[in-house]
Amino acid sequence: MKSKLLSIFFLAGSFLLVEMPVVHAQDPAALMNDIRKKMEKIADYEAEARLKTEVPFLKVPDATVRIYYKRPDKVRIKNQNGISLVPRETTSISLYQVLHSPSQALDAGREVIRGIPVRIIKLLPSDENGDLILATIYVDPNLLMILKAKTTSRRNGTNEVELYYGKFLATGLPDKIIFTFNSQEFKLPKGVTFDYDDGSTRKKQEVTGNQQGKIEITYLDYSINKGIPDSLFR
């Protein structure tokens, strides 16, 4: 009886060791390595998603889109039934490229995001002349999930991506992504558009310099590692 109890205890303990995420007090480089390993499991995916666009000068209805991703940095958002204007810079959506660029990981403290304690890791790229200048990753060390990432690049300035997990947690893929990016100003001469002045109280945008745009992608389903031809990304 005693040995039976012991074996159950041992078995339960083994499960805990396997299933319980490792509590990371480890150094940032090791933590990033664990996350990279987890990301390696996804070679590609095709997903159906709802796209909500929130850019100051864009009035766009929500749309159903198909999103294609292929490692390391190919992302394509396609609206097959209509028009969607999506940001050119989409590598931040996958984060694979950002995490796999040669870089030094530095511990930048801890924070709580959406009630989850996270570790903040700063990635300093080894290549000083590369496009990526700095990446700040907010990691849930228990689940090895990235909850937020800020990337600063020479071409696109600072972008931010927030990732929400739920029903697709087992796959390591998010249920929702909110991607904040820099968008250029927009202004056309009135003599070109011949606008009708309807006297609406629509907020007039400040058109000085860059503005922040936001897209919200809510994933409806994923089809993972089924192979996606490169031609889809052209």
């Binding site: 000068f57 864009l58 009035k59 209509g82 927009f186 202004k187 056309l188 558009t193």
Partner: peptide, 16 residues
Amino acid sequence: NDILIARNDALEIIGK
């Protein structure tokens, strides 16, 4: 397809 409307300070997309 959907229609893109260019205004002086905005772009609008209306579903087809």
